[in-house]
């Protein structure tokens, strides 16, 4: 017993919180990267998360594709779709008020979600956990389902890899340059429009990766991303879109807080993130990791 609750329950919710937090971290990270370079808040982030899960579901269910293959292929496919979307539509809005980007990606949500609802209905499709990752590990103080452990490791490694690419490679250096001064970066001979397209692809690819990871945990359904993306927005307001580290830490932290809330005040578990956002806005309007926007 700890704080008046069984240790088993505490650990279980903590675990679930970390799993959700890893999804939050990957999603807000993608949102932050896209915002950094495109100056657009990608409302369709949840829709791409859903698209990733559905792609995985369709590949696995209808073509019998191997899970590891799907885990790689679905994000790549979604990244291509995202790049096409950026190339065809989104780039027409650069230089306009950023709210148009938000609205265009919102309209994409309507199209994608509506389309999938027509095709597959609103109810969830089950997605089985890969054989290799079924089963549990007994940690002594709790029983940890293997797949959940895998999700946490995979999600956090993808965050780490992204952070490494952006902060430590020359590609990342050009990306950061394009974030600060696109015109000068272009003058140095870097193909900025292509970099922008790639960034959007990478961002939504990350979302799709999270979607594939989430598929065996949640049911695969058309609206699985839209409620998530609103929570992600609140997380991004709390953490600020400016920093990659901030996005990861805030995402993970709020997942844990949410899990613990479910244990202690379950009626607040769906709203706690928004309530924290209100608190942060009152005390530190720029966000925990944010710079004051101009």
């Amino acid at each position: 017993m700890l704080f008046g609750v069984p240790l088993q329950a505490l650990m279980g919710q903590l675990m679930l919180g970390i799993v959700n937090g890893s999804f939050y971290a990957v999603l807000s990270l993608g949102l932050a990267i896209i915002f950094g370079v495109l100056k657009i808040v990608n409302f369709a982030h949840g829709a791409f998360f859903m698209l990733g899960a559905f792609t995985a579901f369709l590949l696995a269910q209808h073509l019998g594709a191997n899970y590891w293959f799907v885990l790689f292929l679905a994000p790549v496919f979604v990244a291509l779709v995202g790049m096409l979307f950026e190339w065809l539509f989104l780039r027409r809005l650069y230089g306009l008020d950023p709210i148009y980007g938000l609205l265009l990606t919102f309209s994409l949500v309507l199209v994608l979600e509506g389309g999938f609802r027509v095709a597959f209905g609103s109810s969830g499709q089950p997605f089985s956990t890969p054989d290799m990752l079924t089963g549990t590990i007994n940690l002594g103080f709790m029983v940890l389902p293997l797949y959940r452990a895998f999700v946490i490791v995979a999600a956090l490694s993808s965050c780490l890899v992204t952070w490494y690419v952006i902060e430590r490679t020359s590609l990342g250096a050009s990306l950061r340059a394009a974030t600060e001064r696109p015109d000068l970066t272009q003058a140095f001979g870097i193909n900025v429009p292509r970099l922008v397209t790639l960034t959007y692809g990478a961002g939504v690819g990350l979302a799709a990766f999270a979607g594939v990871l989430a598929a065996p945990i949640f049911h695969v359904n058309p609206s699985m991303g839209s409620s998530l993306v609103i929570t992600i927005f609140a997380i991004v307001v709390i953490g600020g879109l400016g920093s990659i580290k901030g996005a990861i830490i805030t995402g993970l932290g709020l997942g844990v807080v949410e899990g613990l809330t479910r244990l202690f005040y379950s009626e607040f578990s769906s709203t706690i993130v928004f309530l924290i956002m209100v608190l942060v806005l009152m005390l530190r309007p720029a966000g925990l990791f944010g710079r004051e926007e101009g």
Binding site: P98, A234, V273, L275, M277
Partner: peptide, 17 residues
């Protein structure tokens, strides 16, 4: 307390509340 795109996200989150 925020402006532009953040304001839009805040109002969305508040309406979800």
């Amino acid at each position: 307390r925020r402006s532009g795109i953040y304001l839009a996200m805040i109002t969305l989150a508040m309406s979800q509340l």
